[in-house]
Design a protein around this nucleic acid. Structure first.
Lengths: 363, 363
DNA sequence: GCGGGCACTGCAATCGATTGCAGATTTTTC
DNA sequence: GAAAAATCTGCAATCGATTGCAGTGCCCGC
């Protein structure tokens, strides 16, 4: 077991005890610093005699030596640090993903640098630059939206990156970066199938913010599946952001739209659904009874909102793990072919969907 | 504006373009590297002639030079990185706190290393060691529980630390570390007052895991305030952890307890309340109508669960900001007296509390 | 018994920036 | 106009670990 380095008896209360360095260990063990380095690094340990390795390890332990990731990083140009950018940690779908990523990376000895972009491309670029400054070995981007230069910035900086939950549009350098996403088209299709099976014919879509792959894919999937059922969208409207407030505003607008009327709305994201509930409550409409609502993500606690949300469950955990694994693999071999993984989501039926009433509640 | 460094035309696809160093800038600008360093560092820029500084800055910009935090850190022993340890990022009270911390620190040029301890003291110690390895300038601990050596480990490693949301027990080295917490005793008192005002006389407490300051303070506050009303606790039971499942188990046990019976339960934490709702549903009891429930934290979305939770709202944002400010101040001046800040929470009345029924629903 | 080969270990350079010190230049002052 | 002071800038060491190369010693085979 390691002991703390001996405290300097007359050290100032605020002064930290000087950490033992590799040179201290070398002196104490009677060998050269380079030998210490080799003995203590599992990868090079075979290069030194067993006896020396043991002695060095014992001394290092006694002195409480800890490697300096900074010094090693300067020489090796690797920091054993991975950066993770999320648009907004407050959105509860991210913590589970992050947890999976962090757990896997920590087991491999990596530390994770986490930052919020707040959906601001300028801030995103700044944070990537800053992470480059800290010499991150790789980046996980849960924040990338079309048009932000995030991917090309990473490429320019020479930082391996993978996308989580979002992907680049087909064609546009799609092959340049790996991504682990949900099969968003299929997912929203499940919601449409469910609503149609319940008897709904006038179905609206409340989408995500433009430029975000989850939004465009879900919109696309919505139209396609509806068409397969021989139906037309009853109404379409994107939210300004994936927030509760944006969901409320968009639903309010949808309800105010003249004409058509709809008996169900497939919403692009659970967070938006909270706003949809708010808007419906304000308009005196009942979820399920008047208008059926489906979400997307099955984020924590939506089983406890009222009425419990019918939604599409995604694989947070697998998403985080797979993305981390791909990143590690690409760091080890940058020429590795890029991957585009789609995890398949499933429908979770709860209480926010019901057969339509005869007369559409909304106009 | 900064331009990317010129691409090497025959660079391998996987090869990253070599970053410009301070020496490159020095050569190009016709000055010594030390002058470049001084010219580019805002703090030392005054030591250099304006004209030289401008010229160096121009060259640096043209070459796309970015400082290497790693190299600078090696020399200065500062990484411009702050570590943050949370017990479990999935608990939604942490993301808002983290967001506030991250935003404030990022504005000061700090990056944040985030890790989950999963409530495991061994993992916590390991992570602290690893962060020390990465030379973090300071640590924010949202995970500290009594008995873990986290604080003394930080002290031994010479890393300034502040506690968030949790604090050390009085006496036990309480002065050794600053903490920003809620006034948990007062907070739970508000819940008790509210329940008593509604007419409840048989009130139970479902507490947090033992050894965690939020749990002991809230328990203490519960007893004290109840005593002030001339009442005794109807029942007391700690949960094993701050999780939904632990809440369910504890509530189930509470409901099975023979004797007394209670018409209301003050729960130590919103997350536990979700489990309480689960247990009551399973037992065929209605929240509010049969047993009133109060939470703590006002975490996101509890206004949308059914029935909407009456709870104690804490100041996430202020908590994060103040803790970050204190940490920065203590990093700048380690002899600074420690602070113990208690933020005052407020009661948010929703639908999970109601006057008691005549006959206690539970036994 | 001698040379070749192998297995260790030490030497010294290196990563990229910072900083105490000293030298050089300019400015100030008498 | 010279001495003193102030202002810049360069030199070189330094932070702590890694690693290519060279050297030493040992073992083995012929």
């Amino acid at each position: 077991m390691s002991l703390p380095p001996p405290r300097d008896p007359d050290a100032l209360p605020g002064a930290s005890p000087p950490r033992a360095t590799i040179a201290d260990v070398a002196r104490e063990a009677g060998v050269h610093a380079s030998t210490v380095s080799r003995a203590l690094n599992p990868a090079t340990r075979g290069m030194v005699t067993e006896a020396v390795a043991l002695r060095v390890a014992a001394v290092a332990d006694r002195l409480g030596w800890r490697p300096s990731a900074v010094a090693a990083g300067l020489r090796t140009r690797k920091s054993r640090t991975i950066g993770i950018l999320v648009p907004d940690l407050i959105n509860p779908i991210f913590p589970p993903i992050l947890h999976a990523v962090e757990t896997l990376l920590a087991a491999q000895g990596y530390a994770t640098l986490v930052a919020n972009t707040d959906n601001d491309p300028a801030r995103e670029a700044l944070l990537i630059e800053r992470m480059a400054t800290h010499l991150v070995d790789g980046l996980m981007l849960a924040s990338a939206a079309a048009g932000t230069g995030a991917i090309s910035l990473c490429a320019r900086l020479g930082i391996p990156a993978v996308l989580i939950n979002r992907r680049m549009p087909e064609g546009a350098g799609c092959a340049a970066v790996s991504a682990v996403t949900n099969d968003d088209r299929h997912g929203i299709g499940l919601a449409v199938d469910h609503l149609v099976a319940l008897g709904h014919r006038r179905i609206a879509h409340l989408g995500g913010p433009e430029g975000v792959s989850t939004a465009t894919d879900r919109l696309q999937g919505f139209r396609d599946r509806l068409a397969q059922h021989g139906l037309e969208p009853a109404a379409l409207r994107p939210a300004q952001a994936y927030t509760r407030e944006a969901g409320r505003a968009a639903m309010q607008a949808l309800l105010a739209e003249p004409g058509k009327g709809f008996t169900a709305v497939a919403v692009a994201n659970d967070m938006l659904c909270l706003g949809v509930y708010d808007a419906m409550e304000a308009a005196g409409l009942r979820v399920a009874a008047d208008i059926s609502v489906t979400g997307f993500n099955d984020m924590p606690f939506v089983d406890r909102i009222h009425p419990a949300l019918t939604t599409i469950r995604i694989q947070h955990d697998a998403m985080g793990r797979q993305a981390a694994e791909i990143l590690l693999a690409e760091m080890a071999d940058p020429t590795r072919p890029r991957q585009n993984i789609r995890l398949v989501p499933e429908l979770v039926i709860r209480a926010s969907t019901a057969p339509p009433v005869q007369e559409p509640a909304c106009r």
